[in-house]
C-alpha cells in the first residue's frame, strides 16, 4: 500500500560561511503534523528523498505553541513559526529556508542577537531599582492596558525584520519590533519617566527614520501587533522630542 508522504525541500547550510544547498525529503505523513514534527521525523531517520543517509536538519524551537519565537523560518516563501505551520495547510512540496536577514549558523538555525542588541539600545525595560523601597508605582488606565498588552505579545521572533525591505546588510535599521517596544515601555506609568531617553535612542543612526513604510511588518507579524501604528505614533513622539530638545534645552 502506498504510504502518504510529505515532500519537503530544505535549504541547508553546514557552517556559517559555507554555501547553502537544497536537500529534498519524503517523510511519512501523520495526522496533525506540523513543520517541527516533520523536522523531528528527519532527525529520527536522516535519509533524503534519494534514499541516501544525510546529516539531520538542525533547527531551533522551544515552546511549540507560537509564543517563544525561536522556530521562525521561511516556509513556502513566508517567514513564520514552524511550530504553528500545519502540514495539512501547506502546499507541497513544502519549501523550508532559514531567515537570511539574520546570520545563518547551520541549516535553519539563525542568530537573532541583533534583535536583543536593538532592545538594549532602545532601553526596552523599566528601571525600578533604588537604594530603598520605592513603593508601588502609579496605576495604568484599563483602556491603555488593553492595547499595551497587545504590544507586549512581541516574542522577538524576527519575522518583521525578515519581511522588511529596509532591514538588510546595506542599512543599519534596527527593525519594526524595537520601535513598537519603545511605544510599549513609554506608555507604562513608571516607564514613562524615561520616555525622552528612549525616544532619543530612536532618533539615532539606524533608528525610526529608516522605516520606508512598506508596511510588510504589520502584514506579517504572527502576533498581530499593530507595528505600523506604533511606528507612526513614535514618528510623532520623536518629532515632538526633537523640537523640544532643539527649542527648550
Amino acid at each position: 500500500m502506498a504510504e502518504k508522504l510529505v515532500h519537503l525541500i530544505v535549504t541547508r547550510q553546514d557552517t556559517p560561511d559555507s554555501t547553502p544547498y537544497k536537500e529534498e525529503f519524503k517523510i511519512p505523513y501523520r495526522i496533525g503534523m506540523n513543520v517541527i514534527s516533520a523536522l523531528m521525523e528527519i532527525q529520527r531517520t536522516p535519509v533524503n528523498a534519494q534514499g541516501q543517509k544525510t546529516k539531520p536538519v538542525i533547527w531551533e524551537s522551544n515552546c511549540l505553541e507560537e509564543v517563544c519565537g525561536a522556530c521562525s523560518m521561511v516556509i513556502n516563501g513566508k517567514p513564520r513559526q514552524a511550530c504553528s505551520a500545519l502540514i495539512d495547510k501547506l502546499e507541497q512540496p513544502i519549501r523550508i529556508e532559514p531567515m537570511t536577514t539574520f546570520p545563518v549558523q547551520r541549516d535553519l538555525t539563525i542568530d537573532r542577537s541583533r534583535m536583543f542588541d536593538a532592545l538594549k539600545r532602545v532601553k526596552a525595560w523599566i528601571p525600578i531599582d533604588g537604594t530603598h523601597n520605592l513603593g508601588p508605582g502609579p496605576r495604568m488606565p484599563e483602556v491603555d492596558r488593553q492595547w499595551a498588552y497587545e504590544l507586549s505579545k512581541c516574542m522577538t521572533c524576527g519575522v518583521c525584520l525578515e519581511a522588511c525591505p529596509n532591514v538588510n546588510d546595506k542599512s543599519p535599521f534596527i527593525g519594526p519590533f524595537a520601535i513598537s517596544q519603545v511605544r510599549l515601555f513609554n506608555e507604562h506609568p513608571t516607564g514613562k519617566m524615561n520616555k525622552a531617553e528612549r525616544l532619543e535612542t530612536l532618533m539615532d543612526e539606524g533608528g525610526i527614520s529608516y522605516c520606508g513604510n512598506s508596511q510588510n511588518c504589520v502584514m506579517s507579524c504572527p502576533k498581530g501587533i499593530p507595528l505600523t501604528t506604533s511606528i507612526a505614533h513614535m514618528n510623532k513622539e520623536t518629532t515632538k522630542q526633537a523640537l523640544k530638545s532643539f527649542f527648550f534645552s
Binding site: A163, P165, N168, K170, S171, G212, S214
Partner: peptide
C-alpha cells in the same frame, strides 16, 4: 541614497503598500 539602501522583496510580499514602496 535611501532608495538604494532598500532591498525590495515584492515577489515575496505582494501587499499593496509594499508595491507602493
Amino acid at each position: 541614497y535611501l532608495a538604494f539602501q532598500g532591498k525590495p522583496n515584492n515577489s515575496q510580499f505582494k501587499y499593496y503598500r509594499n508595491q507602493m514602496y
